[in-house]
């Protein structure tokens, strides 16, 4: 098996750009011809960006947050409120939302990031719940549970597009930017620091890594991009409400895609989004009408099976498999 060749092939830099280019072409083609596929592409890219952003704190730094929807909601609500009330362009609102999310993440990070394991997870869940209840019950600001409709005025400046294709590129661009940031982290000091923190905090401290600062930094970076994703999503759906924008399912899904794809790896979240998002949509489409709830039973089962049989996630499992095969072939050859 020429597995080592595949490995070297994929490690060449131009291959990645080729993949992106191919994706772009497919996106363009389907976006024009089939709105339903385009919708799925938008979801895939959006989730890809969100999952990669979550991966910074959840994967690289190993801090399992299930409250990231708080940042998502902050992003969605900030840009929407600014646009609907003051007419400020969502592009600007997106940045304001990201800044706000960064500030909140900074505070939450300092308060909660020294917690370990399940404690951190529960604290972040509680935080997101608080945000949801606040959004639902301050109608003077957020219009409460009734939600805010965004008037449909298609224009690039309004981040509203008539067809799907604009959103396909918007979400693809988002996923790509987050990818670049993650790649930077992956290959630079921050990535090594975070990996070191994930493996062993005590040792990291003794090696001179400022554990607290780096964790908070990861949290802030992660929150910024999740908030941007929130803005993009709200501009796409054109409607924000507390139960959707602060739904626990977003947090769970972000984590899920990363865990499925491979935590703390650059390509894990991308793979996770590419595979799991279509499956989720596909299952609902095929089974949702037949039996109430069957598609979610299947999806949950897939999840459990993944954890049981592929605990390191798809990307890392496959990579290790290829590597061990390669190593074996090499040693076999060496033996001869």
């Amino acid at each position: 098996m020429p597995l080592n060749k595949i490995e070297t092939f994929f490690s060449k830099p131009w291959v990645k750009y080729l993949i992106v280019a191919v994706l772009l072409v497919i996106a363009l083609y389907y976006g024009v011809t089939k709105p339903f596929i385009a919708h799925n592409l938008i979801l895939i890219f959006l989730y890809m960006g969100l999952a990669q952003a979550w991966n910074i704190i959840g994967g690289y730094a190993g801090q399992l947050s299930l409250g990231h929807v708080a940042f998502f909601g902050i992003g969605a609500y900030t840009s929407t409120l600014l646009y609907a009330n003051l007419g400020i362009s969502p592009w600007l609102g997106m940045l304001v939302g990201a800044a706000l999310a960064a500030a909140v993440a900074y505070g939450l990070g300092w308060a909660c990031l020294r917690l370990k394991g399940a404690y951190l997870t529960l604290a972040t869940i509680a935080f997101a719940e608080v945000m949801r209840i606040l959004a639902a019950n301050f109608p003077s600001i957020t219009k409460g549970s009734v939600g805010i409709g965004i008037p449909f005025r298609p224009a690039l400046a309004n981040m509203i597009f008539r067809g799907k294709i604009g959103y396909v590129f918007l979400s693809l661009g988002f996923a790509f930017v987050v990818y670049l940031v993650c790649r930077y982290i992956d290959r630079n000091r921050l990535g090594y620091y975070l990996a070191s923190i994930r493996e062993d905090e005590t040792t990291s401290t003794s090696m001179g890594i400022n554990v607290a600062n780096n964790k908070v930094l990861a949290m802030v970076l992660s929150a910024i991009f999740v908030a941007i994703g929130g803005t993009i999503y709200s501009q796409y759906i054109l409607f924000v409400e507390p139960t959707s924008e602060f739904a626990y399912e977003w947090s769970l899904n972000m984590a899920l895609l990363v865990i499925f794809g491979g935590m703390g790896s650059l390509y894990g979240p991308i793979l996770g989004a590419l595979i799991l998002v279509p499956i989720q949509e596909f299952l609902r489409m095929m089974l949702g009408g037949a039996f109430q709830g069957l598609h979610l039973v299947v999806f949950g089962t897939v999840l459990i099976l993944t954890v049981l049989f592929m605990p390191k996630g798809l990307y890392i499992t496959v990579r290790d498999k290829i590597r061990s095969k390669t190593r074996k072939t090499l040693s076999d050859e060496g033996g001869i």
Binding site: K34, F36, H39, I237, T243
Partner: peptide
């Protein structure tokens, strides 16, 4: 009938899209 399961706003958009275009 072609049934669409709209759990929330996001799924509603997806399902409406499917019912219409697919």
């Amino acid at each position: 009938f072609v049934k669409g399961d709209a759990v929330d706003a996001k799924a509603a958009v997806a399902e409406a899209e499917r019912l219409i275009t697919v």
